[in-house]
Write a protein that binds this DNA or RNA. Structure first.
Length: 301
DNA sequence: CGCAATACCTGCGAGC
DNA sequence: TGCTCGCAGGTATTGC
C-alpha cells in the first residue's frame, strides 16, 4: 500500500477516530507546516457534493487557481485557509473552508500517489504536491468564500458556534448562564456547538466521567461548583488530547510509549461492559438523542 | 424560542 | 456462506 507523504490527520488509519477539536487542531498545525505560500495550479473534484460552495465544482476550482494559502485558522471543527496571490500578498483573496465531519481526511501527497477509494477532491500544487481530501462517508464539505464576503454568510454553520473552549468568553460564569435554565441532558448540551465549540461524542463522555456527572443529568440541576468542575474538565480533556497530537485513543501512541491517563486510554468511551478504571463497576451505555453515551453508574451521578 | 427527531452516508459486524 | 439489519456520529433541517 503506498504511504502518503504526510497524513495530516496523524491518527491510525485502522481506527475510526471522528475528528473533534483536538484532531482538527492537529490537522491545522500540519497544514501550516506543509501547505503555505505555494500557488494552487489546478485540481479535480471527484464528488460534486463535497464542494458546498460555489454551486459548480468547476467554479470552485477556477476560483482557487493561482491562489496560495497564507495561514490556516480553526473555528470549532472548521478549518479556514486565508487565501492570497503571490504578487499581492497583503490583499485577501477569500477563504478555503473545510469541515471533516465524520470520516474526512486531508492528505499531503505526491500527485503520483494512486488515488484511493473515497477520494473526493484533489488540489494540485507545485513540485508534484497535492492536498487530497478523502472521505468515506461523504459528510465532509469544502467551501470557497469569495473575497469581501463575510465568511459566515457562505459557511453558515459558523454562525451557530458558541465560544472557543480556550477563549476568555468561555468562562465558568458563561457556562453557568448557558446551562442554568436548560431542561435538557448535560451530555446533549455538551454536544451542542452553540454552547461550546469543538466537543464531540468522545470528549463529551470523557469530560462527564472526569466530572462525576451522569450524562442524563439535567443542566438546570447542576450545582454551581459542578459547573465549575465541568468547565475545568472540558479544557483539561481537550488540552491533553491536543498535547497528545490530536487523539488520546490511538494504538500507536500507546506502543510508542506515551501513556498516562490521557495518552492512549479512554476512561469510558467505547468501553461498555468493561470495568471502570477507578471502581471496577462495568461501564454502561445508553442512547441519548440518537447518540451513545458511555458512563460509570457508580462514579457518575 | 427550546428541544428532539430525522436525514444524510458507507462499512462493518452481529445474528440468522 | 450470504443475507439483512443495526450502529457509528457532526450538522442541517424539520416539526412540535
Amino acid at each position: 500500500m503506498p504511504a502518503p507523504v504526510f497524513d495530516l490527520t496523524g491518527f491510525c488509519a485502522e481506527l475510526t477516530i471522528v475528528p473533534e477539536l483536538p484532531e482538527v487542531e492537529t490537522v491545522r498545525r500540519g497544514l501550516n507546516r506543509l501547505t503555505l505560500h505555494q500557488p494552487i495550479q489546478a485540481g479535480s473534484v471527484l464528488l460534486d457534493r463535497a464542494v458546498a460552495h460555489p454551486e459548480s465544482a468547476d467554479a470552485f476550482l477556477k476560483a482557487l487557481q493561482g491562489l496560495q494559502i497564507k495561514t490556516w485558522k480553526r473555528r470549532g471543527k472548521y478549518l479556514l485557509a486565508a487565501l492570497s496571490r503571490a504578487e499581492t500578498p497583503s490583499q485577501p483573496q477569500g477563504w478555503l473552508g473545510v469541515h471533516l465531519r465524520m470520516t474526512g481526511q486531508l492528505l499531503w501527497v505526491q500527485q503520483t500517489t494512486p488515488v484511493q477509494g473515497h477520494t473526493r477532491v484533489r488540489l494540485w500544487f507545485q513540485d508534484d504536491r497535492e492536498l487530497r481530501f478523502v472521505d468515506q462517508r461523504t459528510f465532509g464539505r469544502l467551501w470557497w468564500v469569495p473575497p469581501a464576503r463575510p465568511v459566515e454568510t457562505v459557511i453558515t454553520g459558523l454562525r451557530r458556534l458558541g465560544p472557543e473552549p480556550f477563549s476568555a468568553a468561555f468562562s465558568p460564569t458563561y457556562l453557568r448562564s448557558a446551562l442554568e435554565k436548560r431542561q435538557r441532558a448535560i451530555k446533549t448540551a455538551l454536544l451542542d456547538q452553540a454552547i461550546v465549540a469543538g466537543l464531540g461524542n468522545i470528549y463529551a463522555d470523557e469530560t462527564l466521567f472526569l466530572s462525576g456527572i451522569h450524562p442524563t443529568r439535567l443542566c438546570c440541576d447542576l450545582q454551581p461548583h459542578q459547573v465549575e468542575i465541568l468547565h475545568q474538565n472540558i479544557q483539561n480533556v481537550l488540552r491533553s488530547a491536543i498535547n497528545q497530537g490530536g487523539t488520546s485513543f490511538s494504538n500507536f501512541l500507546q506502543v510508542s510509549g506515551v501513556n498516562g491517563n490521557y495518552g492512549g486510554i479512554a476512561w469510558v468511551y467505547d468501553r461498555k461492559g468493561q470495568p471502570c478504571r477507578v471502581c471496577q463497576t462495568p461501564i454502561e451505555r445508553l442512547r441519548l438523542v440518537g447518540r451513545s453515551a458511555h458512563f460509570c453508574p457508580y462514579c457518575q451521578s
